[in-house]
């Protein structure tokens, strides 16, 4: 089971079981749905922007351990960050998971580094990026964002 532990790291299992910022956000300025039809992950993302700064962020829905932990850790990582920081972090994470794309190597993944093991499980990359795709749609679409889908 040693290699599976690379995928299901303790932090991921913890956030998968007890996700942080798992609630509705009444004051949200931006919202979007995210759907991974392949495995049935569904999340709803709430974002409150103050100018270009994330003043609050939360989500609800149901998904696998990887997608739930990813959404949970994303909300933790982004509070207080700018949209630009958030997108740079997404690009860095995406590059880490897929080995594709060019990104600013100086961006620190921080706690999100726990998802590095997902790279060995290509079928699960979509689980780890669903929340981030949903975030991008929410930023672009305001309150009427297009749902994000991994298919």
């Amino acid at each position: 089971m040693s290699d599976l532990r690379d995928l299901y790291q303790e932090t991921i299992l913890d956030h998968g079981r007890t996700p942080r910022n798992f609630r509705k956000l009444e004051a949200a300025t931006h919202e979007a749905d995210g759907d991974n039809p392949l495995c049935g992950d569904k999340i709803h993302l709430y974002l409150q922007l103050d100018g270009d700064k994330v003043s609050d962020i939360s989500f609800d829905g149901a998904g696998c351990a990887i997608s739930t932990a990813s959404a949970s850790l994303m909300t933790e990582a982004l509070k207080g960050k700018t949209i630009e920081d958030a997108m740079a972090l997404f690009e860095r994470l995406h590059e880490t998971l897929t080995g594709q794309g060019e990104c600013d190597e100086s961006v620190e993944l921080g706690k999100l580094a726990v998802f590095e093991g997902v790279r060995e499980y290509p079928l699960r990359v979509k689980c780890a990026t669903l929340a981030w795709h949903t975030l991008r749609n929410a930023i672009e679409g305001g309150k009427n964002a297009t749902p994000a889908t991994t298919e």
Binding site: L7, Y8, C39, G40, D41, G63, A65, I66, C127
Partner: peptide
């Protein structure tokens, strides 16, 4: 436990 996690394990 979500089905997708069951499948991977």
């Amino acid at each position: 436990i979500h089905a997708h996690d069951i499948g991977t394990i």
